[in-house]
Amino acid sequence: MVSAALDLAPEAGTGSVAAGATLQIQGISHGFVLQNEILPVLHDITLRADPGEFVALLGASGCGKSTLLRLCAGLDRPRRGRLQMDGVEITRPHPSRVIMFQDPTLFPWRTVWDNAALGLEARGELRHGRSRVDEVLSLVGLGNFGRAYPHQLSGGMAQRASLARALVNDPRLLLLDEPLGKLDSLTRLTMQGELTRLWQQRGFTVLMVTHDVEEALLMAQRVIVFSERPACIRADLQVGLPFPRRRDDPELLRLRHEALGLLGLEAIW
């Protein structure tokens, strides 16, 4: 089970990098069977994310973005089309591409430390990876909370723990499914900054689903705007602004206007 990518574990804190992966999505169509009918969810999606790129998937809720993310993680197989990571077909889940959900989905019976160590333990690598867990926990600011149980954490801390659980595996592709969706607005702002910093430091490829236009524009290099279900790609916006970005940057405001227009919400502006 151990992939070559995992053996390249970088030393945390030194800024060295597990190179990001290339993700290729080619002509993906998918749907769910609902009362003997197929409900189409994704229609002919083609998309490419280069190594180390941060791509946001923007669209109304329920349009199928999360489904696309599950397909990329290998949790489900698409009905049509091909998914490749670094040229290799994605057929099943793999620790080099980790998905992070809107809910932290921490295991309530495990301490924060044990939750973070989940991947290592599942692959039988825990014995050599203990210091790795400690490092990542301090990286996300939970160094002192290893022995706490999930129910003792605030929403933001729980989401950080969830992030730590993903990062311990040195993912080359991080799949974020509205990871900040349930946080209060202040925590959300902080976490947006922290996630972006982490991505810059680590250089993994990120695919982030969100329905928050501003969040997408603040964090991502490219924002893919999806139509309503069945989702197809409506636009691919390049956000060339340097980091850290300012919310009131005129270019960002212009892009925001454009994105809202693409989502059919011009009138709101």
Partner: peptide, 14 residues
């Protein structure tokens, strides 16, 4: 919750 299984499977659990 199926999400627990999803998480564990993604992280390489058998």
């Amino acid at each position: 919750q199926t999400a627990y299984y999803d998480v564990a499977r993604t992280l390489g659990a058998g």
